[in-house]
């Protein structure tokens, strides 16, 4: 049964017919935002975002959230870019754009819980990266946001089977990827690898989507994968776990991701995990509020 489901998913992913197209604004924005800082121009970003009025409104909402560290209210996209800087603005624009990737027919599973997890994980990744002196917190944010993109693919191409896996995970208190593997023969990391490659995301995003449940299988971007893996786990244990409460105890310092990341970030040894966990609790309300406000399915 699970082999059949797996084959069907792989076939559908191969043709990509049931998958959504990326929002028109997302691709040029991502390309543009990947340019070196010195080549970015304020007006071009403002123009790119302002082309889509709904996107512009969402970006302002997000830019004005304490989660993005604003100090003064931004009334226009230009204000927001000036207040937040190019990198944070990229975080905002990409977050708002990907939120529209979910299907409107949800087969009984509320897609907002997945976006809450992704946005929460992105924020945790960025703060974690800053806290341990990881070289690129902006990249960590982006990878945190997109690490579960395979779940969105499952919602499009195998909604019934995926919803059944979610139900089992909720009932058993088990991790979602294990339940997906049991009932569908494939989990969202494998799907995420295929779909993010198809959408031509960068290599690091693809590897994070593919390996975040098994960081030791990563090769080129091991520390980034490890960072997202630990952040993902922390979110799942802190009430931002796709609406699933995993009934288990974890010691983050025993996770493979910890050993991998400590090789590159010696500061990790002195990291205050307890305080970081309490800080994360402080985000949750705002993450719920933002996602419920900004979520718009296709």
């Amino acid at each position: 049964m699970s082999q059949q489901v797996r084959d069907t998913i792989l076939r559908k992913l191969d043709t990509f017919q049931e998958m959504p197209t990326l929002p028109v604004s997302l691709v040029p924005l991502l390309r543009y935002m990947e340019k070196p800082m010195e080549q970015m121009e304020l007006q071009q970003i403002v123009d790119l975002v302002s082309k889509d009025k709904a996107l512009a409104a969402q970006c302002l909402h997000m830019a004005n959230s304490p989660l993005f560290g604003r100090r003064q209210a931004a009334q226009t996209i230009r204000d927001a870019v000036v207040a937040l800087g190019f990198q944070r603005m990229r975080d905002v624009v990409v977050s708002c754009s990907v939120l529209s990737l979910s299907p409107s027919d949800n087969h009984g599973v509320d897609p907002t819980v997945f976006w809450e997890h992704s946005l929460g994980c992105a924020l945790v990744c960025r703060q974690f990266a800053s806290g341990i002196g990881f070289e690129d917190p902006g990249k960590a944010y982006l990878c945190g946001l997109l690490h579960d993109i395979g779940i969105i693919a499952h919602l499009w191409i195998a909604p019934r089977e995926f919803c059944s896996a979610v139900e089992h995970a909720r009932k058993d208190g088990s991790p979602l990827h294990e339940m997906e593997l049991n009932s569908m023969g494939i989990h969202h990391a494998e799907t995420g690898k295929l779909v993010s490659a198809r959408w031509k995301f960068s290599d690091d995003v693809i590897e994070v989507a593919a390996c975040h449940h098994d960081p030791s299988s990563a090769s080129a971007h091991r520390s980034l994968v490890a960072l997202v893996s630990l952040s993902d786990m922390l979110c799942r244990m802190s009430g931002l776990g796709h609406g699933i409460t995993e009934s288990r105890q974890i010691d983050l310092l025993e996770e493979p991701g910890f050993a991998l990341l400590s090789q590159e970030c010696p500061n990790l040894k002195n990291f205050d995990w307890a305080k970081f966990t309490f800080q994360l609790e402080g985000y949750m309300e705002e993450v719920h509020r933002l996602v419920s406000l900004l979520y718009r399915p296709q």
Binding site: T245, L252, T277
Partner: peptide
């Protein structure tokens, strides 16, 4: 944090 390193911090749901 900063008081004892003898204990291991573990996470359970929330």
């Amino acid at each position: 944090y900063g008081v004892s390193e003898d204990f291991r911090l573990v996470h359970m749901p929330s």
